[in-house]
Design a protein around this nucleic acid. Structure first.
Lengths: 412, 412
DNA sequence: CGATCTTTGTAAACGTTCTTTACAAACTCC
DNA sequence: GGAGTTTGTAAAGAACGTTTACAAAGATCG
């Protein structure tokens, strides 16, 4: 393989291929001529890049009724019939696997749920089995697998570090294990980060797509307080992938014990679980957010007093995030808002009252509309797209630049 | 000018030139052969890139005693004798202008201080005058000017937004005004951001240079609580350049009035000014941090009780920063630590006690060793270096990518 | 002292890539 | 059916990096 040679000129071609992918991701199906106009690169160049991508099964042509003058364009789209990727979501109780096209659209009929096994080996074999089911029957090529999992992840080593809810992944690297077992690219993401990527690519229906939402925050207020930050189009990781640990900011002096070992962390008072805990305390028995929702809907339970306790803390969390990250949007995932139609608006009103900074005026807070499945899929798609260009470290904010090229003098 | 044509092939050449600059910035003076080894690009390519940079006055050759075998190398370094850049620091009371080489080393003899004028026009004419002094006499080429200023800055428009301490810059754009008056590139940075850049490039004496410190936080606890975040090698700006507003997190319910209009903001209790305010309250007259330091050094004043009030809040600030940004280092600028040798260690010990997260173990807190002058200079140097490649948005984290190429279809 | 060796830096030929130019393909409108 | 328009590709030309070859400059050694 003549890989070592002519590496630099090839870079331009690879950059062009990546740009073509980006255009299709942002603007949806296009013809070659459309891409030429959007990128400002000449038509023959686009033609070559497209044919290379077609050969790699990342794109596909499709017929589409035309309505303009002139020769009808051959439409291109991200591969959905000729290739797929697979998303794996590992969660505390249940995990699942689902396939999707390269446009990120999930194939719901392919969903395979299973209880999260008690051992790591069990997990891997379950996933391998589900993978076989999703690939064997079909003539479609599978390009990669994305993993979304909770806890802390070391991205440099692609290794789970610390996951209170799914401890079987601690110290393990499902990404590299599955890569060797399945023979396809696998990539692992912290679940909040995966939600960020999903929101980045697929969250905004049609109109918003081209505006480029590159600075936003994803707040998951379910089991704890998870946060992902998209900054300048890249997911913020910090030095070791631990950035965004909003949940463990000290909030209540000598408050309730937190899973992290400290007391009174923000996530002990500002998430679905915290609300459920407060309700459980009052009614004298343990109740989950699911059950609370049911009973509230049927009028058997009123949780207004607990909501009033939780709301100021959530509002503090949002204020903090706005001040420190200056996002243009905050997306919030939480079951809590299903309890009452007005709850979400109350939260925003309360935050507005306490946050009088210019940054607040810039920021819109909305409910998230993406799932972890979409996150896992978005992760592997992003990975495949960025792999087209060596030295471009997409996904995460950590500069490769020179260090990607080993210093040849070191081998002497 | 045939600028519109052949733009894409030229990209490679520009990328190579930028890479050469980066190598010299990180590793210090090198020969062409050294650069070839470090970058893994072939020798003739480096030769061409270097000669282009020499012509652009960004590099210069110099003689240096050799000690190896073989033909002695011609050493290259960032221009210091053939070119200079100028840094402008605008501050509340005093401003100054200073020149520096492209390696960022300040020429202290060139320092020109002046009281910050009361009007914007006055400021500009003062700067123009100082610029003349620094350039007219000398045969050296001036490549650009960097501006460091407090307050909020809109980077997209290069315009001052809101600066409580230097209100004359509000709504003004010294960068573009000076660009047109002086005919050289000018760039404007928020002072904390400029300190980040300075620390990134010039803060670590020799050994650290190659390790690539790409995730750190700069905390300025002087007049307020300013913060700059370097994440993945880029300065975090957020959507509108307002990211990092740590100082105005709510901290003391119904606390002292803050300049921002709210009460009890973190910076009302956790900076040099806050300490000075507390001391002033006790002794019954207004006293600044300078005077406090003098009196403490001479034993006339004891501020231990005020320090004990400020320390926990500072510690909270550091904990928050570590949890949210996961930096590998935190640099702190503050006069406060000059009051007592042990104060800095006490702060770290107090923070360690309250912050038991994995992110804390990754993070080292040290005192900053860069100045705003270096920041202003680092800003313009970074700008000049990145300008070599169109579409590379150095300095700040906001993806240009496709949007840098206007959609040609729009002109129809 | 001169020949050999080592390293540095550049010139010429070559291959890759993008651009320019030209042209065929395919459809609409008249 | 012909003119007009848009799409997509092929061939020639230009820019760039790489390979190969070689000159330059000093150290080492006989």
């Amino acid at each position: 393989m003549p890989a070592s040679s002519q590496t630099r000129p090839r870079l331009l071609r690879q950059m062009n291929e990546r740009s073509v992918m980006r255009v299709l991701q942002r603007h949806g199906p296009c013809s070659r001529a459309d891409i030429t106009r959007k990128l400002g690169v000449t038509a023959p160049t686009i033609s070559k890049a497209v044919s290379s991508l077609l050969q790699g099964r990342l794109l596909e042509e499709f017929d589409c009724k035309q309505d303009g003058i002139g020769r009808p364009a051959r439409q291109l789209r991200l591969a959905t019939e000729t290739a797929q990727v697979i998303g794996l979501v590992i969660d505390a109780r249940e995990s699942h696997v689902v396939s999707a096209g390269l446009d990120g659209r999930l194939d719901c009929s392919s969903l395979r749920r299973f209880d999260t096994p008690k051992t790591y080996r069990g997990l891997i074999s379950k996933v391998v089995k589900a993978y076989e089911e999703l690939t064997n029957g079909r003539s479609i090529e599978t390009l990669g697998l994305g993993i979304s999992m909770p806890g802390l992840i070391d991205y440099r080593q692609q290794k789970g570090l610390l996951s209170p809810n799914v401890p079987i992944t601690n110290g393990q690297s499902p990404a590299s294990d599955l890569t060797s077992k399945l023979g396809i690219d696998c990539v692992m993401l912290q679940e909040s980060h995966s939600l960020c990527l999903a929101q980045h690519h697929y969250g905004n229906a049609q109109g918003d797509r081209s505006q480029g939402l590159d600075n936003f925050v994803m707040l998951d207020i379910g089991a704890g307080l998870g946060m992902g930050v998209m900054s300048g189009g890249r997911v913020l990781t910090g030095h070791s992938g631990l950035a965004g640990e909003l949940g463990h900011l000290p909030r209540i002096p000598d408050g309730r014990a937190c899973g992290c070992g400290k007391r009174g962390c923000l996530e002990t008072v500002a998430c679905d679980s915290a609300l459920a805990w407060l309700v459980s305390q009052r009614i004298g028995k343990s109740i989950g957010i699911d059950e609370i929702e049911k009973q509230v809907q049927s009028g058997k339970l009123d949780v207004e007093s607990e909501i009033q306790q939780v709301l100021p803390h959530l509002s503090f969390a949002i204020s903090t995030v706005i001040s420190l990250f200056n996002p243009s949007k905050i997306f919030i995932c939480g079951r809590m808002f299903d309890l009452s139609d007005r709850l979400f608006d109350r939260l925003i009103a309360e935050t507005a009252a306490g946050t009088l900074t210019p940054a607040f005026a810039d920021c819109e807070t909305v409910r998230a509309n993406v799932s972890k499945s979409q996150g896992a899929v978005a992760g592997i798609i992003e990975y495949l797209t960025d792999s087209l260009v060596p030295g471009v470290d997409g996904l995460f904010a950590s500069r490769a630049e020179l260090s990607s090229v080993p210093d040849k003098s070191a081998r002497m």
